[in-house]
Simulated scan of single mutants.
Amino acid sequence: MALIGVFDSGVGGLSILDEALRQLPEHDYIYLADSINAPYGEKSSEWIALRSMELCQYLAAQGCDAIMVACNTATAEAIAAIRNELSHIPIIGVEPGIKPAAMQSSNGIVGVLATEATLKSGKFSALLATLPDCQFVKQAGAGLVPLIEAGQADGEQTLELLAEHLEPIQEAGADTLVLGCTHYPFLRKAIRKLLGDSINLVDTSEAVVRQLKRKLEAQGKRLDNDEHGSVTFISSKDAQTLHQMAFELMQSDLDEHSIKSQLVSSFT
């Protein structure tokens, strides 16, 4: 059994935790939401890198055997430095699934909905350069993360803003849409309401957790899916709200796990 740290700017990484509990329910998890600073996507690269390092160091100090940086923006800006600093444990990041999207697309036109910071990052540009035969329609989802953080993933204001962001992707004729922020899988219902089943949706949560599983197996960590470990929710803003949103947004049966929540105002 292992202790897994999962870090995000807010509730978006719950989509990764949800998949982890589906594939690897026997482990213990710490979910760390830096909600007081969400969203990260509109902050400077320097700030994101420093804060992401600080939070991952906090998780490592709690004894985590592996850490999932469940934030596309933090991964793009900080994953290399975090891996260098915390080289004694596996650090698994997330990135927009443009490679699988390019493979799935029938017409070679793929929409990418992500944060401004992710779309402008060198890591994302390098990834795009490996797929020159596909047309990518990049769209920053400005304003979506705060609405999801406020529990309005299915609200009318979210639907209106999402429709604006999806319009250029629709007009370009994309048949595949990459959900390039871990918050955005919680918009699936809204996206389907707007676009129906006319577009393939791609997120990488399943692949990310498979990578975690491989890393744990390489460490010799025991895997027993008949057991259910604990989940500790930690927030820099409001632990009770994070706890409630986890039960609302996640599909996993959290009642099968021992659940704790706590507020930590400083991670130093």
Rank of each mutant, 00 (worst) to 15 (best):
L14V: 03
L17C: 10
L17R: 07
E19A: 08
L24P: 02
E26T: 06
I30T: 10
S35D: 02
I36D: 04
I36L: 12
N37G: 04
N37K: 08
K43Y: 08
R51V: 12
L55G: 03
D65H: 15
N72S: 10
A74N: 06
A74C: 12
A76H: 03
I79N: 01
I82R: 03
E85I: 09
L86Y: 06
P90F: 09
I91C: 08
V94P: 04
P96E: 02
K99G: 04
A101T: 05
A102Q: 01
Q104L: 15
S105N: 08
I109C: 13
L113F: 13
L119V: 07
K120D: 09
S125Q: 14
S125D: 01
L128W: 06
T130W: 00
F136K: 02
V145P: 07
G151Y: 04
G151W: 00
Q152H: 11
L159C: 11
L161D: 06
L162M: 05
A163R: 15
T176M: 05
L177D: 03
V178N: 08
G180Q: 02
C181L: 09
I191M: 14
I191C: 08
I199S: 02
T204F: 02
V208I: 07
K213E: 14
T232C: 15
S235H: 06
Q240G: 00
T241I: 09
L242R: 02
A246N: 02
A246R: 01
D255V: 09
E256K: 14
H257M: 08
S265G: 08
